[in-house]
């Protein structure tokens, strides 16, 4: 970001630039968030490029090398029940899990923002009905809802993404609705309306940008949530279907080998925990950075 340049702008400089610089500085001061961002960057690069650099593909079956423990030979992180290289599988699974995480987040954000902005802007009957619908959706424990629906549809990567998205937009809708409702009452929306701006223009040009901070935080936490959700339903056998690997379904069969080959269970779980913790740290750092009033609570 350009605002991070070391030359401090004069006190009278444009305020938005200074504020963004302040936010970036606050984010960088949040050591855990920086750590999280570093981990995510590393994981993303490793999953994107790693498979090209490894001597084994994730589908290469070597039955002679079954259950090779980590750090014991050619397979750095060992092999699974079919003698497939764990590192290659972890990286390919990471592609899927991160893809699911980001895509589900993007779709759920679109739904959540749309519902939130409409009900926050128009209020009244429309707003009430939409928000009560959100309340009702939140009554269903997410795993139960995910499993019930996934049992009814054909599981594929894209359907799992959609499924996670349509079960995780509600919190975002609540946040956006509250923000928009509060902002709408403030002067600039009224002024824009008085100037004859269209509803859509007021919503997307005037209101939404001012609600961006909590939306960014919610988006980050939503990625963490989506990765977790994918791992849960894949672990239970209703998510991403083998042979496509995901961190969740790698664990699916691992329980049976817990005694003989514990790394089969340990490694994918560590990957999930690492990724989810990192996103949560980033979300926490963003919250502090974008909203200094929160004061680290």
């Amino acid at each position: 970001m350009s605002a991070s340049s070391s030359v401090a702008p004069p006190a009278a400089a444009a305020r938005p630039a200074r504020r963004r610089g302040g936010a970036l500085r606050r984010f960088l001061r949040h050591r855990l968030a920086v750590f999280g961002a570093g981990v995510i960057l590393f994981l993303t690069l490793a999953c994107a490029l790693g498979p090209y650099l490894l001597p084994f593909t994730d589908t290469h079956i070597d039955i002679m090398q079954r259950f090779a423990p980590p750090f014991s030979g050619a397979h750095v992180l060992g092999t699974d029940a079919l003698g497939r290289d764990m590192l290659a599988r972890l990286l390919m699974a990471g592609r899927i899990s991160l893809l699911v995480g980001f895509s589900a987040m993007a779709i759920s954000m679109v739904i959540g923002i749309a519902v939130g902005i409409v009900s926050g802007y128009y209020g009244g009957v429309v707003g009430t009905v939409l928000m009560r619908f959100v309340d009702a959706m939140l009554c269903f424990p997410s795993i139960f809802l995910l499993l019930a629906i996934s049992a009814l549809i054909n599981a594929s990567v894209s359907s799992i993404i959609l499924l996670i998205a349509i079960t995780s937009w509600m919190e975002v809708a609540r946040i956006v609705e509250a923000q928009i409702r509060a902002l709408r009452a403030r002067d600039f929306a009224v002024a824009a309306e008085a100037l004859g701006a269209s509803d859509r223009r007021v919503m997307f040009r005037e209101l939404l940008p001012n609600a961006i901070a909590p939306i960014v935080v919610a988006a980050t936490l939503n990625v963490a949530h989506a990765i977790l959700a994918e791992s849960y339903i894949s672990f239970l056998g209703y998510g991403i279907q083998p042979p496509t690997p995901s961190w969740g379904n790698m664990l699916d069969s691992a329980q049976s080998y817990l005694t003989s080959a514990p790394w089969l269970a340990i490694l994918p779980g560590l990957a999930i925990t690492l990724a989810v913790t990192s996103f949560n740290f980033i979300g926490d750092g963003l919250r502090d950075a974008l909203d200094p009033r929160m004061d680290g609570r």
Partner: peptide, 18 residues
């Protein structure tokens, strides 16, 4: 607490069993 919120429950279960 942040890590605890990020650990997949089923995996923690496997670790506890292990």
């Amino acid at each position: 607490a942040m890590i605890a919120l990020s650990i997949p429950t089923f995996w923690f279960g496997l670790v506890v069993i292990y």
